[in-house]
Structures are given as C-alpha cells and as structure tokens.
C-alpha cells in the first residue's frame, strides 16, 4: 500500500459540491470537463494542475478516504468530520459555505410534555450515531441509536422512535412532518480537511493548497 504520487482532493457529491464550485475556481483549481458532466460515470478527474486529481465521493465517505490516505485533501462537512472524529485528519480551513446545523428534534407534543432531566434511556434515529451517543452521554443519557440513511423525519411519526438527530437547514422539513427542534448540537459548514501524513510528508504542496483555499474562503 503506497500512496499515489499525485495529490488527491476528495469532493462530496450533492449539496455542498454546488456551493464550493466558486471556491474551487478562486483557489485556482480547474477540473477537466467530464467533472461537470452529471451523467459521467467517471469517479476520478484530472485538473489543470498535473499534480492534483479530484475524486467525487459520497459526503460521508470523504472522511474515510481522507483518514486512510486514499485522498490527501477533502472538502467535508464539519458534521461528517465530527462524526468520524479521526486523529489522522486536520481541518484547517472553514470554507464558510453549506451552512446548516445539527439538531435534536421530536414531535411537538413530545417536546411539550416531557422533562429532559428525567431521561435515562432514549431511542434516537440518526445518520450520526457517534455524535448522538456522545451528545446524550454528556447529559448522562444512554442513547440507543437507530442508523438511518435518509427520510429521518418519518421515523417519529411511524413509531420507530420519538427523537431524531439530523441536519437542519431551514427547518421546513421538520415542520412539514410535525417535528420541532429541541436542541442545537452544533453549527455545520464545509471544511477543507487534510490527511496528517500527507501534510507531514509533503508539506509544500499541501500547505500551498491550504493557503489557496484559505484565501478563496476569505475572498467570498
């Protein structure tokens, strides 16, 4: 297992990708044309910089590619970095895009009628079992997490659980499903993250990219 000679930047598919495209341009990173083709089956893309490739992966996988050194840099949501809280990953730049927050939510009647002081064990549906467990453990509550990959807002109404921990952007999805926010766990935004070994063994090119992203974020 040896690292690729080229530096690899992992970008998340979906919501954040659109938001960071202007940042990439400002940082002087120009992907090849196939990158913009939504129908392309290609997963790895060249850039104008012969020393830099881009891979497009699922948002949650950016941290995994990065931790194992398969990617050297990644744009990753701070929610994902928090979930995988990995000592091999640094997150030096807040890109200040893709803002939302992580929240605990429950049906309005549950939220009204109960006293959080009395919780000892809860069942919570979430995409973020580690964050959820840590959050409740810090409050002395044993949380049994049900890992779902989407449509979390359905879970309380269908009796799967009474609470969810999920990303909230505008709150309209919660509202549409009769849920209210009980507590805000963390603010979320996109970060530039780097692999520790890559930063230590190839400090010049990695620091150069970090600097370019920092400038690009500042100029926004």
């Amino acid at each position: 297992m040896t690292a690729n000679e080229k530096l690899v930047l992992a970008l998340p598919k979906g919501r954040i990708l659109k938001a960071i495209m202007p940042l990439l341009t400002r940082a002087g990173i120009q992907p090849e044309d196939a990158f913009f083709d939504e129908d392309s089956r290609q997963l790895q893309f060249a850039t104008h910089d012969p020393e830099l490739d881009i891979i497009r992966v699922r948002s949650f996988d950016t941290a995994t590619f990065l931790a194992f050194g398969a990617a050297h840099l990644a744009v990753s949501g701070s929610d994902v970095l928090m979930e995988f809280d990995h000592p091999e990953i640094y997150a030096p730049v807040n890109l200040d895009v893709g803002h939302c927050h992580l929240a605990v939510a429950a049906p309005a009647d549950v939220a009204r009628s109960e006293d959080p002081q009395r919780w000892s064990h809860l069942r919570v549906a979430t995409k973020y079992p580690n964050i959820t467990r840590r959050y409740f453990a810090a409050r002395g509550v044993q949380a049994e997490c049900i890992k779902l990959n989407g449509a979390l807002e359905l879970a309380p109404n269908l009796g799967l659980c009474r609470r969810i921990v999920d990303l909230v952007q505008t709150g309209s999805t919660l509202k549409a499903n009769g849920l209210v926010e009980i507590d805000r766990i963390a603010e979320v935004s996109a970060r530039l993250a780097v692999n520790r070994t890559a930063l230590k063994t190839r400090p010049e090119p990695v620091n150069d990219l970090i600097g370019r992203f920092r400038e690009a974020a500042r100029a926004a």
Partner: peptide, 11 residues
C-alpha cells in the same frame, strides 16, 4: 516526534 516515509500512509 513521528517518523514518516514518503509513500507510506502512516507513521
């Protein structure tokens, strides 16, 4: 300190 070798993905 940490000791690294170029091309190896860890310490």
């Amino acid at each position: 300190f940490s000791l690294f070798a170029r091309g190896v993905r860890g310490e």
